[in-house]
């Protein structure tokens, strides 16, 4: 009989992140099945030791653990496809750095909620933190965090990814990790902008620290624990983002600070840019509806929507009542 550890791990999504995960799985000594609807060749041939599989049902039938590395625009559709082929034995773990939107942005949902709703799978989790695709692909040391209410799910992810170059930490605050992962992108973009615009280290530090506090308040609306935002999923990921000049969120901020239009800058960094610029205003609208004060996120959303320019946004933050 096949034990759970002998089963291969399925990775969905042939982009950079999906390929990095599949590569980590292989490096941890497990069979990795990489499924990409758009074709593996989009991001190049599969990493060494990774099997490209064309059919989702076949890969899922062989695996217990499915790692999902698709964008928020595809998450609902992917969840529905998984719903047709997954059962109670599966663990579904996504690595989405964003929230799924419905009703033209009125409703924001963590992807774990979508997966629970669209499938019969209970063991749902999220993978986040300073997991840098290029580092993982290159086999450089790093770490990340997996969140799930199910110990089994966490154990599966650890067994699938942990290796000499990758440490996997754990938490049960699934929704906290999801909100943190989503808002780190926004703060990384703001940090990129601040650095590019010459705000200086002090202002940048205040911006991201107070911004993370805002993120924690938003997280609480979803039922997250505040301490999640000070851990790997929050500050950990933000530090990694700021240290990585290639991170699209930071690049987006820098490009705008250098005088590019938002439209231009988004075109340069790709789909991530579109998601980022849509998320902040939606988060702020949610916070306002819930009477939660998020001044830094509000300033970022104001700049993104064109409601005010950078000096005005900076003034709005600097002139706030300190009491």
């Amino acid at each position: 009989m096949t034990t759970d550890r002998e089963r291969p791990v399925t990775v969905l999504g042939g982009g950079r992140f999906g390929r990095a995960l599949a590569s980590a799985v292989h490096r941890a000594g497990r069979r990795a099945l990489l499924v990409s609807r758009s074709g593996i060749d989009i991001g190049g041939p599969p990493p060494e030791g990774v099997e490209a599989v064309g059919e989702l049902a076949r890969a899922v039938a062989e695996s217990n653990l499915v790692l999902i590395a698709v964008g928020s625009d595809r998450m609902v559709e992917m969840a529905r496809e998984l719903g047709a082929v997954c059962s109670g034995r599966h663990s579904l773990v996504h690595g989405l750095r964003g929230l799924v939107t419905h009703d033209h942005g009125e409703t924001l949902e963590p992807a774990s909620v979508v997966l629970r709703r669209e499938t019969d799978v209970r063991r749902v989790g999220v993978l986040a933190g300073p997991l840098v695709a290029t580092s993982v692909l290159a086999g450089r040391p790093g770490g990340c965090i997996v969140a799930s209410r199910y110990d089994e799910c966490i154990a599966e992810v650890r067994a699938a990814l942990t290796g000499p170059m990758l440490r996997v930490y754990r938490t049960d605050d699934c929704v906290g990790v999801e909100v943190a992962a989503a808002l780190v992108g926004t703060l990384a973009m703001a940090a990129g902008f601040a650095l590019g615009a010459g705000f200086g280290p002090s202002a940048t530090a205040v911006l991201v620290t107070r911004g993370m506090r805002d993120a924690g308040h938003v997280g609480r609306l979803f039922g997250a624990h505040p301490e999640t935002f000070t851990g790997l999923a929050g500050f950990g990921d933000l530090v990694a983002a700021m240290a990585d000049e290639e991170r699209p969120e930071v690049r987006l901020g820098r490009l705008v600070a250098e005088g590019r239009s938002w439209h231009d800058a988004i075109r340069q960094v790709g789909r991530v840019g579109v998601e980022l610029t849509m998320l902040a205003p939606r988060i702020v609208a949610l916070a306002k509806r819930s009477k939660v004060d998020v001044p830094v996120l509000e300033a970022i959303a104001g700049v993104l929507s064109g409601a005010f320019d950078t000096p005005a946004a900076l003034r709005s933050l600097m002139e706030r009542d300190l009491s």
Binding site: D4, G88, E152
Partner: peptide
């Protein structure tokens, strides 16, 4: 239903789960 309690392919108790 049985698929929810499988461990290594056989049904098993698991307190956390």
């Amino acid at each position: 239903r049985r698929s929810y309690v499988l461990k290594d392919g056989v049904p098993a108790m698991d307190a956390n789960r």
